[in-house]
Amino acid sequence: MTATISTEQALIYAMVTMSGVEGKINAVELAEIRQLVETLPIFRDFDEQRLIAVAQEAGEILQDKEGLAAVLGLIKGALSPKLRETAYALAVEIAAADLAVGREELRFLAMLRDTLELDKLVTAAIERSAIARYQRP
């Protein structure tokens, strides 16, 4: 696939794909995506009004037979090595948002890690950080 997407689109694709890997996007995860787009500096120049359209783009790509591979390729192609860790961290945030991480989400995280060629120690640290943030008494 030769199409390119922006950095912001790639990060949103990662979050939307994480949210949808179990077959549906739940309201808690969708609210988390919106909150991250509204508050993180990486999205400073992104028009928040485009969030739904970008999320729908990702969903449309994912409907194809090879859609997941295509989305992963687009994400990797749009991000510098430095921002690949950011994509992984945002995907982890979405997985943790509803306080339940299922098998499909874990499988997608492994695929994302491998596609983005991230160090396993780095991804373990990102995951552990999310666990600490979402810890309950």
Rank of each mutant, 00 (worst) to 15 (best):
A3M: 10
A3C: 01
A3L: 11
T7Y: 05
E8P: 12
E8H: 15
Q9C: 08
I12S: 05
V16K: 15
T17C: 11
S19Q: 02
S19V: 01
S19R: 03
S19F: 00
G20I: 02
V21T: 15
E22Y: 00
G23M: 06
K24L: 11
N26R: 10
A27K: 14
E29R: 07
E29P: 04
E29N: 02
L30R: 10
L30D: 03
A31T: 12
A31N: 14
A31K: 14
E32T: 13
I33M: 15
R34N: 10
Q35K: 15
L36I: 15
V37T: 06
R44H: 07
D45Y: 07
F46R: 03
F46G: 04
F46K: 05
D47T: 06
E48Q: 15
Q49N: 12
R50M: 13
R50A: 08
I52V: 15
A53I: 09
E57I: 06
A58R: 15
I61Q: 03
D64P: 00
D64M: 03
K65G: 00
K65M: 04
K65C: 01
E66Q: 10
A70G: 02
A70K: 15
A70H: 14
V71H: 11
L74T: 05
L74H: 08
I75L: 07
K76C: 05
G77T: 03
S80Y: 12
S80K: 15
P81S: 07
L83I: 08
R84Q: 15
R84V: 11
A87L: 07
A87M: 06
A87G: 04
A87W: 09
A87F: 04
L90N: 06
V92K: 02
V92L: 07
I94L: 03
I94V: 13
I94G: 01
A96Q: 07
A97I: 01
L99K: 14
M111K: 15
L112V: 07
L112M: 07
L112D: 06
D114I: 03
D114R: 08
T115Y: 08
E117H: 09
L118D: 08
D119I: 10
K120V: 08
L121M: 08
A124E: 09
E127H: 10
S129I: 00
S129N: 13
A130F: 05
I131W: 05
I131A: 11
R133Y: 00
Y134E: 00
Q135Y: 08
Q135S: 05
R136G: 00
